[in-house]
Design a protein around this nucleic acid. Structure first.
Length: 339
DNA sequence: AAAACGGGGCC
DNA sequence: GGCCCAGTTTT
């Protein structure tokens, strides 16, 4: 790996940083989490934004901070209710870990989000990115917050051809940020890097003509935007066939809870069994659900005996349980069937 | 280092 | 169908 300093030979750091921060202060989008300095709310936004688009997060952020406005409120809540506020966002361990972390903040730090790096980064669900993001945005500390946007922007600007899919590459980008970060406004620098990646320096067809730092950009000078960043691709996803069994009795429905670890941990569903050639009951229809790493194809059957491992739940109770989007799709199918 | 972990939007 | 998204934890 090339030492980080070599990327800064003949590179005007001052111009890059000054222009980036000025652009961010001028062009930033108005977002709910930019209206606050509350470290707890900023922390929530950063967890929600992991692998999730801004437009998706906005309504969830507003509902969540409205229902759980302080660390005390989240720490005291039932996990099932917290999950309902996360339902549909995906990566459900994020919010389980967040609640655990917030409970620790309440119990050990009086509900004050720690501003000491070694303490904050030790909390559940808080990795290198979230540490840098919260410490810089909420507390003004000059820490790098390297996400996918930052790696894309800096790989292009500096001509870094390391594979961004390799875990150790992140450290190179963190070192690069340390070289560049505006010590007077680390928050605007880090957010500017991410904002530029989100709205100008996009993965495909970046709008280089509108870029505030195109003057100093390695890729723009060589027309190499298309080959950066370098990222190795992963294999294709596998498809799994399931049957979902729907049993109703006296206005109640039979549902099971998924195991407390693994995919969709703890969420409720119609019993899901490996698909077989045998008839299960009356065929209702099928749904397809695509995860990032696998595909479910689920055939839905109505059955006349209660499946093992299920509990009968009335409608009012069922709607309070967290369910997956796949389960929502099945519910929609059943609703259409009866109309 | 690689896999697991959701869901949606875009081409 | 593949890629990407304000990543972290587990294996």
């Amino acid at each position: 790996m090339i030492p980080v300093q070599e990327y800064f030979i003949n590179f005007n750091k001052r111009t890059f940083t000054t222009e980036l921060v000025a652009w961010f202060l001028r062009e930033q989008r108005q977002l709910p989490w930019r209206e606050t300095k509350n470290p707890y709310h900023i922390w929530i936004s950063e967890i929600m934004l992991q692998q999730t688009r801004v437009d998706t997060v906005i309504p969830y952020y507003n509902r969540f901070t409205d229902r759980f406005p302080t660390p005390h409120d989240l720490a005291a809540a039932e996990q099932s209710e917290v999950l309902k506020y996360w339902e549909g966002l995906g990566y459900y361990s994020r919010v389980k870990n967040l609640q655990i972390a917030v409970q620790e903040v309440v119990e050990k730090y009086g509900g004050i989000v720690p501003d000491e790096k070694e303490i904050f980064e030790s909390l559940r669900g808080v990795g290198p990115y979230t540490t840098g993001a919260v410490l810089s945005i909420a507390y003004g500390q000059a820490e790098p917050a390297v996400d996918g946007n930052v790696m894309r922007v800096l790989s292009r600007v500096l001509g870094i051809y390391e594979d961004i899919a390799a875990p150790k590459t992140r450290k190179l980008f963190e070192a690069a940020v340390h070289e560049l970060i505006d010590s007077a406004d680390p928050s605007s620098f880090n957010q500017g890097l991410m904002e530029l990646g989100a709205i100008v320096c996009t993965p495909k067809s970046p709008m280089c003509g509108l870029c505030p730092v195109n003057d100093v950009c390695f890729a723009y000078e060589r027309n190499a935007q298309g080959e950066l960043p370098v990222k190795t691709k992963k294999g294709k996803t596998q498809t799994i066939q399931y049957d979902a069994l729907v049993y109703e009795e006296a206005g109640k429905v039979a549902v099971e809870q998924r195991p407390d670890t693994g995919l969709l941990a703890g969420m409720w569903q119609y019993p899901l069994v490996e698909s077989t050639e045998d008839r299960r009951g009356t065929y209702v229809g099928n749904i397809k659900h695509i995860f990032s790493h696998r595909i479910w194809e689920v055939s839905i059957y109505r059955v006349t005996t209660q499946p093992e491992g299920t509990v009968l739940m009335d409608e009012a109770t069922y709607v309070k349980q967290p369910i997956s989007v796949a389960q929502m799709k099945i519910d929609r199918l059943l609703k259409e069937e009866t109309t």
